[in-house]
């Protein structure tokens, strides 16, 4: 049970590893960005999990409720999600331009073309 209690954090580790693996080893640039988004999401899960209080409710004040989950991680992650999508948009725009310039969005092809042009 003690291990199960930290279940959320275990999942964070697994997701982070999956995301990072995609970023490092996949050659496709869009896929890399997908991996990056999985990687970032795992951090969001870490933050949100730490804000949870057993038996608590959403941090919106209401009569008759006394236990609320911690609102601060929520605020931080709201920020981080928006930052994540901003990065994603910029990355995708770069990918579009790379496709136009190199004719490919595979890391291997691009590196080869760079070598040839040198």
């Amino acid at each position: 049970m003690a291990y199960l209690a930290q279940y959320n954090y275990w999942v964070v580790v697994v997701l982070m590893m999956i995301g990072l693996y995609v970023v490092v080893s996949h050659g496709n640039l869009v896929k890399k960005l997908m991996g990056l988004s999985i990687f970032q999401t795992s951090v969001f899960i870490l933050y949100i999990s730490m804000g949870k209080v057993d038996g608590g409710t959403a941090p919106i004040l209401e009569e008759g409720i006394s236990v609320y989950s911690n609102p601060l991680p929520h605020v931080l992650i709201l920020t981080a999600i928006v930052v994540g999508v901003a990065t994603m948009a910029l990355g995708l725009a770069l990918v579009v331009r790379i496709k136009e310039a190199y004719g490919s969005i595979e890391e291997g092809d691009i590196q080869e073309k760079d070598k040839q042009s040198c």
Partner: peptide, 27 residues
């Protein structure tokens, strides 16, 4: 140069990983 795009993309990936690592640490 078109290599600027590729450099920016690489920097974006590395930079985001770096920033996310910092975010984990802060968390």
């Amino acid at each position: 140069d078109r290599r600027a795009l590729w450099a920016a993309y690489q920097y974006l990936i590395m930079g985001t990983i770096g920033a996310t690592f910092i975010l984990i640490g802060i968390g």
